[in-house]
Nucleic acid binder design. Structure first.
Lengths: 186, 186
DNA sequence: ATGCTACTAGACCAATCGGTCTAATGCTGG
DNA sequence: CCAGCATTAGACCGATTGGTCTAGTAGCAT
């Protein structure tokens, strides 16, 4: 499917997709290998610590993707609410493309796994990178640094909860309704 | 530890605790059995479909516990915000008792697992039961049915996101700060 | 006591798990 | 052409997985 990607990238993307669908422990190494079309030896060459290494790489890659969507959403936004709303709509579209059953791309793959603290630290870092990216746009739109950080944190919290509810109900509306929930009717 | 509990209840509670810590796929049947002090035969007697049955029972039990906390929190509350705030403080305390690493008691154990749709349906039902319980208190405090349902949904969404952030940071403050985040400074 | 049901007990199973290891195969600079 | 490194390839490993099955025990009704 993605012949031009490097072996390493094919592994990361296959792992990301499968972890999101079935979780860390629910995904077998053999599934990842099959989906990526890569033999076992290559995995341990690129990721010496095996599955755990791969999961951290996948989490990092995912965070970067999310930040890209955030930046896209705020590029032409006249104010905070517009940026946030665009982001919600983009993510709702993604939600519908994935079959509405996957975990939140942001945090779905970040927990679980035997090496608790490594994953927790990875999650914290990814979380903070995402919040910082959103806060930066808040500042650019005139908010004070503290207000921007707070707004970003509140929004990401709401987004995380909304994705969960959207998933149980299989309805992306919950995501699109988040701005109204947080900031009142448009 | 809990000698007076029935075999069935000991299984449910051991499973709840372990699923919350390590997730569904991350928890082995043998761990649950050891923690509950129950042989394998008993499990399949009480839960013919095995692990999946047990997980659904655990989810159901957890939802009931959460509703109990909600009812407690609103018992003496003069208004919505007070009830919600009490709930957040109670849950923050629980968060500190668990070693701040567990998944949200409400939704941590509801996803993942091979039988996707069964678990999803179970999650949806639990989610709605919890929201309905909160909404009932909103109505009792004078909100219209629609307003109460909406307030409850918004709050649970925020709570779910807050627990996730609290977990990555290992700081229960995030939970206690939720009312201010949603409704402004006290 | 007897027969019946509810439950406990754990040996046993095939399948799969994550991980290691050796051999072969490019690919590169000399 | 060859030496040497990076990478691929997959056979193989012990451990553990969820699940089945048979045997035994406890408690109750008759």
């Amino acid at each position: 499917m993605n012949d031009e990607l490097s072996t390493r990238d094919r592994l990361i993307q296959a792992a990301t997709r499968l972890f999101r669908q079935r979780g860390y422990d629910g995904t077998g190494l053999s599934e990842i290998l099959a989906e990526a079309g890569v033999p076992k030896g290559s995995l341990y060459h690129h990721f010496p610590d095996g599955k755990a290494d791969l999961a951290c790489a996948a989490a990092d890659w995912t965070a970067s993707e999310i930040i890209r969507v955030i930046d896209d959403s705020f590029r032409a936004a006249p104010d905070w609410r517009h940026g946030v709303t665009t982001f919600c709509y983009k993510m709702a579209k993604l939600f519908d493309i994935l079959n509405s059953a996957d975990a939140c791309p942001i945090f779905g793959l970040l927990f679980e796994g035997p090496d608790q603290d490594r994953f927790r630290a990875q999650a914290e870092q990814s979380f903070d990178r995402i919040i910082a990216a959103a806060a930066r746009h808040g500042e650019a739109l005139g908010l004070s640094p503290e207000a921007a950080h707070d707004a970003a944190e509140t929004f990401i919290i709401g987004f995380q909860g909304s994705w969960t509810l959207a998933r149980t109900r299989r309805k992306s509306d919950v995501l699109r309704g988040l701005p109204a929930r947080l900031y009142g009717p448009a």
